[in-house]
């Protein structure tokens, strides 16, 4: 655990050494701000308060920017180590591939959580506004469900990015591949979920659609099947990354 924390600390520091991390933070927080501004306007125009979390966590600005933002952060995880040759130096120390890959994954996930920090602040602002207006704010359950959705989606998105970074030495290729998979699946399953012609297509789309899942989570619905889907996918993606790293050495 001590060694894992040591690896994690270095990874987090390394993330913030690059200007890209600050650019990504600026870009995503700006979109979060615009999204919140839009949400306030909707509420001022008479939108129901119950819709606030859906607008806050599932606004189109955030939904469609995450497939870009996450691969930009994860692209360097393993690919950069391989490019610099430091992978050889790290893997000839007594640490295991699992410790190394998990530290990489957790660092990217922590950065992802930092991206969502404004959402916590905006929830506080909304609560304050509600208190001022004498309106009862949404219960803790709805907030827990919404943040569970954010966490599960983060695990899955970062695991996809990690795998792409393990597969290639080129960071740009890793980022493009990650974007293609995340954005492609988001769009395809979302469109399938809205298909009215074929029932089977619609149900498959809805079952796999990140957009639909986030809508449910921000409505306060936690579906155990969806939780298992995200956790299962994240675990096998991370496991595959570890195995690929081991396999490339053998």
């Amino acid at each position: 655990m001590r060694i894992f924390m040591c690896l994690l600390k270095r990874e987090l520091r390394a993330l913030f050494y690059t200007p890209l991390a600050y650019a990504v933070l600026f870009f995503f927080w700006l979109l979060s701000g615009l999204n919140f501004f839009w949400l306030l306007q909707q509420l001022a125009d008479g939108e129901r308060l119950i819709m606030a979390l859906q607008l806050l966590f599932n606004g189109p600005l955030l939904t469609f920017s995450l497939p870009v933002v996450v691969p930009l952060v994860t692209m360097r995880l393993i690919a950069e180590e391989r490019r610099l040759g430091t992978l050889e130096a790290v893997l000839t120390t007594p640490i295991s591939e699992t410790q190394f890959v998990l530290a990489k994954f957790v660092s990217a996930f922590v950065f992802y959580l930092i991206l969502w920090l404004p959402a916590v602040i905006y929830c506080g602002v909304l609560k304050g506004l509600c208190l001022e207006q004498g309106v009862v704010f949404l219960g803790a359950g709805s907030l827990i469900a919404a943040f569970t959705g954010v966490i599960l989606m983060g695990l899955f998105y970062n695991a996809v990015g990690l795998l792409m970074s393990t597969l290639t030495t080129n960071q740009v290729v890793a980022a493009i591949a990650g974007f293609a998979i995340l954005f492609g699946s988001l769009l395809v399953f979302m469109l399938m979920g809205y298909s009215t012609q074929y029932e089977a297509v619609r149900s498959v789309g809805q079952f796999f659609s990140t957009f639909a899942h986030m809508l449910d989570f921000s409505r306060g619905v936690i579906d155990s099947r969806v939780v298992l889907l995200y956790l299962g996918n994240s675990v096998w993606l991370i496991y595959t990354s570890i195995r690929i790293l081991e396999w490339k050495r053998s």
Binding site: L84, G85, T86, A89, T92
Partner: peptide, 17 residues
């Protein structure tokens, strides 16, 4: 074995930052 080995790879890879 790795505990007992000090290895300097070719091209000496380091973290430049």
């Amino acid at each position: 074995v790795k505990r007992r080995i000090g290895y300097l790879p070719e091209h000496c890879p380091l973290y430049p930052e």
